[in-house]
Amino acid sequence: MSTLVWPPIAPAQLIREEEATLARELEWLLASLQETLQSLKSGLEECAELLAPKEPGSTLVLSSLRSENLKGFITRVGARIVKGDVQLRLPSLPPPKGQTSYKLSVSILPTAPTLVLEQLTTARTLINACLDVVDATRWTGDSKNANFISGQIRLLHDNIQEAKSALKGWTEGQKAWYEAPVDANAFNPPLPANVSFHLSVSEAAVLLNVRTLEAAYPNTGTNTPLSFTAGASTPSYSGLSLRERLATALGGGRPAFHDEAHEVFIYKGQEVRVRDKVRVESQDPSLMAAMAKLGALERNVALSRRALDIVMGKDSEEG
C-alpha cells in the first residue's frame, strides 16, 4: 500500500502538518494521563493501607526448617514489632536451669524501646511521597505542560521503584546487622550481650537472623574467637571450646559451620565472630500484596513515561 500523499504537498507544508499532528497527539496523551494518575492514586492508597499500623496487626509464625533451633512468633503493627516470643535451642546459648530452651520475649512495657522494621518505614514514606506527587501533578501544576508532566511521571516512577525495592530487601542504604544492633531493653528480660537479634524484610517476608557472638582477638596470633564470658582467659586455638574438643575426640561431630563462620565483624565497638546462626523467614500476606501492587503500578508508570517520551521526541534514557 502506498504511503504517498496525493495530491503531493510542499515539503514545508508537510512538516507543518506533521507538527500539528504531533501537537494534537501530545494534547490527547496529556489529557489521558490525568485519568491514569487517578487510577495510580487508587493503587497507591491501597498499598499505603496494607502497610498502615492497624490493630490487631499481623501475627507471624517463626520456625526453623528441619530443626528445633528456633520456634516462636512476632506480631507486627505497621513497621513496629509490638509482641513476640522466641524459643532458642543453640549449642552456644545454654537455657536457664530447669528449662529446655532459651526464651527471648519482646518487652510490652510502655517505656521499652520499640523494634522497628526500617524498610517498612521507608516504603510507606515513599508511597506517601508518591501520593503527594500525584496530587501536585493533578491539582497544582500545569496539566498541559508536557515538560512538567514528564518530570512528575519520572519522579513518580523513581519513588515507586524505591518503595518496591525496600520491600524486596537489601537496598543500598540498608544497614547490616552489626551496624544497627537492637536495644537490649527492647526485650524482657534484656537481650544477652552475646546475642544479636536482627529483623529485616526480604522478598516481602519478615526475615529473622539470631546470632550468638564471641570476641575475636587478633593478638592471639591466630585470630581465634574467644568467649564473651568474663574469666575465660584460656584461648581455644582450634576454634572450639574444651567441651567441644572432648566431644570431637570421643567421636562426636564438629559444630556445623555457617556462611559467616570465618568472618570478623565490629559489633558494638568489639571485634566478634558468629558462633551460631539461625535464619528464619516468615511470609507476610500484607507485604506480599503491597509488593505485587507496587510492581503493577511500576509497570503502568513506565508505559506512560515511555509513551510521553516518544510523543515528545525524547530518548527514554534521557534524564
Rank of each mutant, 00 (worst) to 15 (best):
L4R: 14
A12H: 10
Q152A: 12
L120D: 06
A296D: 15
L126R: 13
D284C: 15
P94L: 04
Y217S: 09
T171G: 14
K277D: 01
G269L: 06
L297Y: 02
K144A: 14
S196K: 00
A31V: 13
W177A: 02
R306I: 09
Q283F: 11
E260L: 14
S282H: 06
N185M: 05
I74G: 04
L70N: 03
I9H: 07
F148H: 08
E35C: 04
A290V: 11
G252Y: 09
Q152D: 03
P96D: 04
E281A: 14
D85E: 13
Y102P: 04
L50F: 12
F187G: 04
G78C: 03
E318M: 12
N145K: 09
R24N: 11
P192Y: 02
N194G: 10
A176N: 13
A123R: 06
D142K: 09
A180K: 15
G251I: 06
L14S: 10
S236P: 08
Q13L: 14
L120V: 12
L120A: 00
E179N: 06
F148G: 07
T140S: 14
T125S: 15
K314E: 11
V5F: 07
F265A: 01
V301H: 04
A290W: 06
F197Q: 00
W177T: 03
V278E: 02
F257Q: 15
E25I: 05
Q152H: 11
K314H: 14
E318K: 10
M291S: 12
A31C: 08
N300R: 13
K168F: 09
S2T: 15
A180E: 14
A123D: 08
T212P: 01
M288C: 04
A204N: 03
K277F: 08
E45M: 13
R243Q: 06
E27D: 15
R305E: 04
V301P: 02
